[in-house]
Design a protein around this nucleic acid. Structure first.
Lengths: 144, 144
DNA sequence: ATCAAAATTGTAATCATTACAAATCTGAAA
DNA sequence: TTTCAGATTTGTAATGATTACAATTTTGAT
């Protein structure tokens, strides 16, 4: 519990009741839930909780790097409390999502879960192109 | 032009005017456009075109493997006429999306575009978990 | 106890995508 | 050529996740 609070503080997030609940849920459940799932799970124990708060919190935590937003499901965003480098596998049949340890070379990975038939591998990079990186640097300069 | 038609036929898609136009647009433009962009670009030359047709066509082409749906933009789906293995880079500043050649080892790649600052690398696998793969096999068996 | 800033909440938009049913087109058979 | 069924296209009306916004509540310092 104290670990949760520290994790938020480490990422510059003031630990409120709601934020800690969302963070704790994502750390305890490796299921990569949607915002809606998180709301429904937490609502019983926090009856005043609003769905907007869940969305706000998830956005804040994502921006601060405390959690990861996963775009593997074209319908809704999914969230992962584990920010360490790993890949994800989504079954096209049942929609389940597994964590996959990343190896340096692009071989197919299997863990205790069983065999996984890989149809598609998607690799996405996100960052800044040269122009934007330079603009950023200027802005930072201007601010200081 | 004949190449477009053949590409559709190769993927079991009956080549209609609209389908060829969408396919041609994606082959000519490596910009990873959204459905909306494609509609707006094609509408002048095909005044009867409907946005629903664009969506239908993109879904069909994606299902048949003639194009790729890219989930790098959390707002809307993007499409790529190049189905050969390559990664994508999206600038968080301007939103531009570049094709990135994939190498076996996970080093950072640069091409003629210039330097790219990589903040995040997302690797997604899609396929079937063991249970679904087996269910699939049974279904196929039953059908034959 | 007081007050401003931050956080939370509920409701009402937004907007990409899909459902659906009508209209149109296509190509084979008569 | 005409006809007709099936495939394709079209327009309009939903759907549903996410966000905007303004009001309310909470927090923490004075």
């Amino acid at each position: 519990m104290e670990r949760i609070k520290q994790h938020l503080l480490d990422h510059d997030v003031k630990p409120s009741l709601q934020r800690m609940a969302v963070m704790k849920y994502l750390m305890d459940n490796k299921t990569h839930p949607t915002a809606d799932m998180i709301f429904n799970e937490l609502f019983p124990s926090i009856p005043t909780l609003s769905k907007t708060t869940v969305y706000n919190t998830l956005k804040l935590l994502t921006d601060k790097g405390a959690i990861l937003m996963i775009g593997i499901d074209e319908k809704n965003a999914r969230f992962d409390g584990d920010t360490s480098p790993h890949a994800h596998f989504r079954c096209k049949g049942c929609g389940c999502i597994y964590d996959i340890p990343i190896d340096v070379n692009n071989t197919i990975f299997v863990d205790g879960i069983g065999e996984l038939t890989i149809d598609e591998v998607h690799v996405y990079y996100k960052g800044s192109c040269k122009e934007c990186a330079e603009a950023h640097a200027e802005n930072d300069q201007a601010k200081s």
